[in-house]
Design a binder for these strands. Structure first.
Lengths: 194, 194, 194, 194
DNA sequence: TATGAATGAGCCTTCATTCAT
DNA sequence: AATGAATGAAGGCTCATTCAT
């Protein structure tokens, strides 16, 4: 029997499935090990402790997530289009991977402060991507030059995050990706009449 | 010695402090009891179980929170002013109560799905307040009539929530309330130049 | 409102019902108090502690039980008839009082050694009645003069007790009293052919 | 150090000792674990819960008990001899194992209905052995053909059980095995003079 | 590398009993 | 005599982590 996939990724993938199916608190190390087809002890050859599995899940999955968004936005011509692409891909990637969406939006938040801070560190590059788009938009005079970039980034991220969380908690009953243009328009145009 | 404060609120307040100081997972029932100055068993005369303490904390504190915001916004003349007041008070109340902010933004999220759904139920009236302001703004022709109210409400709540969470995680190093006008302006005007 | 029944017996009767319905381990003092219509604390004006309630239940109920059997057997002419009457009444009284049968045969046995020894002390007079019948039978030459009275008493009591317990555990599906003549005959005649 | 004895039996034996010495209710799982020389958690690798330890104690010990009695009675020629052997061994085995006698006669009865029903299930084969002897005796015309086998079996079991319980509660002050012939005779001959 | 049996610290909850009123 | 709110000790069970093989 040949098993090329290194055990590391086997365990990561098992963790995503187990957490999505059982919830954070019912996801014992032994359950993840069983799903990955390894012994409990083997987990500790690849991860420092249980928390390290969780951080690594986020690191691996978000790494791809961010990288793909960064690549895709770079292919667009201006900041406004880049922002639209970012929103579409943010919604699209989580809508396409139901288990991952449950884990990132619901389960991973049930963790202690220390873990949450590590998660924030992992998210940093994503926030840098958003900041870049905003700064570029200002330079291109597409966006107002007086905007508070960090604050606006929080607004954008908070909006996307809240929207995805609501969608997950409503059990995917509507088309998430379809919301992208509207969200994009709200951010750029505001809600004032005229 | 006279102790008029009913034990129920004593325990609620003790829970806020203990959770803010120790984090959700290190907040044993016995620790909350000790802080409240009652016996462990007394907790169970007022709360069904540990989770019930947490739900009740949110219920009590958010109840006041929402009520005060609803009252204050009602005193303003138009939807735009109401929205500004809502943002100011949302930031203001959490900025004024550091422990409560830690609990609502960080600790209470470390709970299971069932508890989170109860929390959402408690938050419902707040979302209704936001929806009301948006609908009024449309009627007053202050806001565009084509806006998707539920989606925009998610955007607003997500923005406020993310902004407060960032502020808490940065250990209150800047003036949260001062951000209110900018956030209000972003929401109403958007970011597009002109 | 007039309530002539002293609270003592109210509590005893409540205890029998509560224990029969809920089982020994689910019969909290507060449940007995509620059934008796008194406050928890009132229990302790009449009983030293929870165990004392149980001992008293047995004392009161078995007191009547034994007294009635003693009286009835005394009215019969000879030891063999007295033995039959004792068996009939032992079966009859428990068959007539379902709750009491559950308590004496099943629930009261789930108690610690000390309580069981007190129960044995209460049962003593019953054993004396049996011994008396056996000795009388020997004197009347109805029973063999070489029988070991204490041992035989154990045999008789063990037989009756086991028979009633089986009947209770079978949920009273057959006629207990109808077994009395057969049991009486087995004890007096043995099982040997001829 | 070599320890071939599987932990399962180590725990069973420790449970018998601890329960005999401390009584059922004072036999904490941690006490049994300590006596067995294993960690508390190890108990739960071999037993579902505390009650499962008790059922298993009875299952293991009674299994041997019943098997040995079945084997020994089979070696006797007729039903009457078989009955005598059964009585001798019933008394003999419990007299030889003081701790086990305390557990079976006193402590194991302090359990809830569900456990008692499991105990009855385990005892079933023993009752089948008794029934077999009685039926054989009828066929051999040693016993009366009109006897009610289930009732008589209750009488026999009740007599033996009550006799052993009395002996245990009297702290083994007399020779239990010596009672066997008398009990046998009482059962077969009855108590009637001639 | 890999295993998985063994470990043992840690905590929520119950309920008999008390005592101020 | 009666109340019932308050007490606080006690223990079964889980599960992340280790380590001998």
């Amino acid at each position: 029997m040949k098993n090329n996939k290194p055990k590391y990724m086997l365990i990561i993938d098992a963790a995503v499935d187990v957490i999505a199916e059982n919830g954070y608190h019912a996801s014992q190390v032994s359950k993840i090990a069983k799903r990955a087809g390894v012994a409990d002890g083997t987990i500790y050859l690849y991860f420092k402790n249980k928390e390290d599995i969780l951080v690594s899940v986020f690191e691996e999955k978000m790494g791809q997530f961010i990288e793909q968004i960064a690549t895709a936005t770079n292919e667009r011509e201006n900041a406004s289009d880049k922002l639209l692409t970012l929103i579409e891909m943010h919604f699209g990637q989580l809508a396409a991977n139901h288990h991952l969406a449950i884990v990132t939006q619901l389960e991973l938040r049930q963790s202690n402060l220390e873990l949450r801070q590590q998660i924030n560190r992992i998210l940093k590059p994503y926030l840098v991507v958003i900041d870049g788009i905003l700064k570029e938009g200002i330079k291109e005079k597409l966006f107002r030059k007086d905007i508070n970039v960090p604050l606006l980034r929080q607004m954008i991220f908070g909006t996307l995050d809240e929207t995805v969380t609501n969608w997950v908690m409503n059990e995917d009953k509507y088309d998430l990706i379809g919301l992208a243009p509207t969200v994009h328009e709200l951010i750029t145009q505001g809600i004032s009449a005229k």
